[in-house]
Design a protein around this nucleic acid. Structure first.
Lengths: 144, 144
DNA sequence: ATTACTGCAAAAGATTTGCACTAGG
DNA sequence: CCTAGTGCAAATCTTTTGCAGTAAT
């Protein structure tokens, strides 16, 4: 299913309204692999969408997280909370030095997801499976 | 090994100094299962340690995370960043409604840890394996 | 005796709030 | 037409920073 249809379906099902802002923000998140913060999203959309406000970015991210379309990774370094539209089971890795966040495929996360969903009693909405440390590049540069 | 000795050993090995503040903060974290924020730690230690400052709590938490003694779970609800002194492999579960954070033992997290340590190329310092959703209590109260 | 650590006050920044206006259905 | 959603300005609150005094080794 394509991104636009998916968002529209979920939004409607929840009794919410489809707006150009929501579409642009979700599209950007789905296309990007940089795990952006609200600020980064806001800046990336400035050119294409000059009237967009930071408030709307925050509102929309909150909505998307509640709908389970986006995972909230928490803050990484000084850049604020990062978001990830890839809700497929995978691991995120953050560098404590350069604050880059990357994806790592994992054969165990799927099992972990199932384990949590079944054993916790929680109605799970999303997850933060994020490891932090020093990335290979920064290790080479002497940040150990 | 007991908590005090463990902290002293790691602190010394890193060339840092042992202080009553660091001991009190680490002790509190190790004893508590509430995954407190800096503010919560500060308030909890007020009675026992009136001269303690919030700045020192932040400094100490940063140090403990760098030493690998404490995991930073990221922000949960409006209470700021939460910390966990249990670095044994386990899963944290946060409620989107009441913001309680609990531990969930898991048979898969250990394998996940090893997988990440071995395949990522990162020098791993800590992790955030945190799922969020609605806890059983809040589900009963109608927050679905 | 050195210098890392603490604690205060002020600053910085991310996120939230209140409210009038706009636009989706 | 109705009300959810947007955008602006201001407020809030966590976290950071600079610096002088204190204490660990």
């Amino acid at each position: 299913m394509n991104i636009k249809q998916e968002l529209t379906t979920v939004i409607k099902k929840a009794g919410l309204r489809m707006t150009p802002q929501r579409m642009a923000i979700y599209q950007l998140l789905a296309d990007s692999h940089t795990h952006p913060s609200a600020q980064m999203i806001y800046q990336s959309l400035q050119a294409e969408f000059p009237s967009l406000s930071l408030t709307t970015v925050y509102n929309t991210l909150e909505t998307l997280v509640e709908l389970g379309l986006v995972n909230e990774l928490g803050a990484v370094g000084p850049d604020g909370v990062r978001y990830d539209a890839d809700t497929q089971p995978h691991v995120n890795l953050a560098c404590l030095n350069c604050h880059k966040v990357i994806d790592l495929p994992s054969i165990y996360v799927s099992e972990l997801n199932q384990e949590v969903a079944q054993n916790s009693g929680y109605q799970v909405r999303g997850s933060r499976v994020l490891y932090y440390g020093i990335c290979p590049d920064c290790q080479e540069k002497g940040y150990v």
